[in-house]
Design a protein around this nucleic acid. Structure first.
Lengths: 112, 112
DNA sequence: GACATTCATTGATACTTGTCAATATCCATT
DNA sequence: AATGGATATTGACAAGTATCAATGAATGTC
């Protein structure tokens, strides 16, 4: 298992966790959320929330801003753009007209 | 670490791997790909490809169809729809007009 | 300064996952 | 049925990760 460097994979990996997806969804709804408010929605201890926020920060999903005692988190618009770009690129694929299908069936072997 | 059941998280987790993302991208480009053609693009052994294809199958990303000796894979349109739906739901969040920002700054504590 | 609160870090532990060698299974051809 | 090629499965191992208790660092209040 080699460590990830592809930024797209990093973005997906960061979102692919129930706690972090819940965080992203709450941020999508509220726009800005204090770190102390995430413990309520996610049913995990404070260090765990802090860990997940770090993952989201380092993957580019969120930014934080200190205001006195509290730290407010919000989603980076750039991450949303990148995520939607990936969603646009992944598609069911090129159309397969009958001629192409027939060619594939009669071909001696798949393309190398 | 409790096992995942949320289908959205499962979909993201399945895509959040370099090999599997490469598979999805090749399927997006070519529409339909023979299992034997994935070993070339991903630089991993055949059992590893088979393992990743299984993950993509069980998470709903792809379907397979046997044609004689070869098995052809393609992306499920439904998975694409779900993925794009998630991409649409995650956003930088509600707008923060000056009044809201001022209220947040002067508030004694974050909303509980 | 002393104290309380918020958030981050450290360290330990249990669980999950990506990988491959070896083997099995399925299909087509001879 | 015997052989060969394409995929899947099994088993084992190394590496990654989610979690929390304990602790540290920063800020605000008294």
């Amino acid at each position: 298992m080699r460590r990830q460097t592809d930024p797209d994979v990093l973005l997906l990996q960061a979102a692919a966790d129930p706690t972090r997806l819940a965080i992203l969804r709450q941020l999508s709804t509220d726009g800005e959320v204090c770190a102390c408010d995430f413990t309520a929605c996610c049913d995990v201890a404070q260090p765990t929330i802090s860990h997940h926020l770090k993952v989201l920060r380092e993957s580019g999903w969120v930014t934080s801003e200190r205001r006195g005692t509290w730290i407010w988190y919000s989603i980076c618009p750039d991450a949303v753009t990148r995520f939607r770009g990936m969603a646009g690129e992944i598609s069911p694929g090129a159309p397969r007209p009958a001629t192409v299908l027939a060619a594939a069936l009669s071909a001696p072997a798949p393309a190398r």
